[in-house]
Amino acid sequence: MIVSQFLVLASLLFSLGVYGLLVRRNAVTVLLAVELMLAGVNINFIAFESVIRDSLASGQIFTIFVLTIAAAEVGIGLGIVLLIFRNRATGNVDELDLMKW
């Protein structure tokens, strides 16, 4: 196995996530796309780790950090979505343009 195959796979996942982030209307699905991007990043970390193999296993440790922060992000993100839904009765991000000129 070569490391590039994982890197290409990771960037494919990441760009699929970006596509979803830009194209989805429903806020929950936007968050799903963000999770996809983070999954791509994690594959990158693990792939590099398996090449470098430093004594601290930094790649894996950073993956754990990413997972943790992603969990926090989902929690807060869904809280915000819930709040928006409660106040605006919509979960679609393109209908939220309060910040418009």
């Binding site: 429903n26 929950v28 968050l31 799903l32 989902v74 929690g75 869904l78 819930l82 839904f85 979960g91």
Partner: peptide, 11 residues
């Protein structure tokens, strides 16, 4: 959590 979010926001 996501599934809850989907259900609660009545997506």
């Amino acid at each position: 959590l996501f599934l809850f979010g989907i259900m609660i926001t009545r997506a």
